[in-house]
Simulated scan of single mutants.
Amino acid sequence: MTPLGLSFDIEMDASSDLACDDERVDTLFTIRASPAADAPSQAPIAEILIMDSSLSMAGLGKLNEAKRAMCAAIDTLQDGTYLAVVC
């Protein structure tokens, strides 16, 4: 039985031709949630919010604005929504 009646698939796409001395890699994650085969007729809602907290967000209040936007997004969620936050 799948917890919460949801099934998750995660795909990662990144460059495979990195130099030995590379210190950074850009990666694209795709996360999909779908009702599990044995899920009840009304599966729960799941939301994943991703916030950029890299050095590019330093200065000029960017990180504070991103946090404010994250809070505003959370405030709009329906009661009972499962939530994940990635920073």
Rank of each mutant, 00 (worst) to 15 (best):
S34M: 12
F29I: 03
A33I: 05
A66I: 08
A69G: 13
D13P: 00
S34G: 13
K62W: 12
D13G: 00
A37E: 15
I50T: 05
A58L: 13
S56C: 03
I10G: 00
C20D: 10
L18K: 01
G59I: 10
A46G: 07
R24S: 10
A19P: 02
S15Q: 11
A66T: 13
V25G: 04
N64S: 15
A39T: 12
M57K: 15
S7Q: 09
A43G: 11
K67W: 09
S56R: 15
T2H: 07
C20N: 07
P3L: 08
A69V: 08
S34K: 14
M12D: 02
S7L: 07
D21P: 01
R32Y: 03
A19G: 07
D52V: 05
A39C: 14
M12R: 06
L4E: 02
T27D: 02
I45D: 13
K62R: 15
A37M: 11
G5N: 07
V25R: 08
A69I: 08
K67S: 12
F8H: 06
D13E: 01
S34P: 05
P44V: 12
S53E: 14
T2F: 07
M57P: 10
P40L: 12
I10E: 00
A72N: 12
A19D: 10
A14V: 05
I48V: 12
F29C: 00
R32F: 03
R68W: 09
A14I: 02
